[in-house]
């Protein structure tokens, strides 16, 4: 470090002591290797054997997935329990309604209760022109 060679910074001066001006504690390099080796683990750390997987470790991801689907199914069923049953008519009830609308008696019963005036009023409200001759 303290050799004297051609100075590239001040060529006119010819030489430049290439000293860093830095020092180290006495015997630092002599004792460094020994201290360093004390930090290096004695056993072989790089050969890492993968531990054998237990049955539970193998099955675990599938079990978690099954639990997740069961949870979703339960949530959907819980939701349907909270909805009032009256607002969700059964298929049979809906079918009965449709059948009644299609029957002649339904029309005659329903239409008989609506007067002509109510009918015209409804048409007038919804913007329908009533013909003059009516």
């Amino acid at each position: 470090m303290s050799e004297t060679r051609q100075n590239p910074i001040f060529p006119s001066e010819g030489t430049w002591p290439r000293k860093t001006g830095m020092t180290v504690p006495e015997g630092y390099f002599e004792s460094f290797a020994e201290k360093m080796m004390e930090r290096i683990p004695a056993d072989e750390p790089r050969v890492v054997e993968m531990p054998r997987r237990s049955i539970w470790q193998t099955v675990r991801p599938y079990a978690y997935m099954a639990a997740m689907f069961a949870g979703i199914w339960l949530m959907m069923n819980m939701f349907s329990l909270f909805v009032p049953s009256s607002s969700t008519p059964s298929t049979q009830a809906l079918l009965a309604d449709v059948t009644s609308v299609q029957s002649d008696s339904y029309f005659s019963d329903y239409m008989a209760s609506v007067s002509d005036y109510e009918l015209y009023d409804d048409l007038y409200e919804s913007g329908f022109d009533v013909p003059e001759n009516l």
Binding site: P17, K19, T20, G21, M22, T23, V24, P25
Partner: peptide, 9 residues
């Protein structure tokens, strides 16, 4: 840890 050399510093 320096040797006190002003030029080197």
């Amino acid at each position: 840890w320096i040797d006190g050399d002003e030029a080197a510093l």
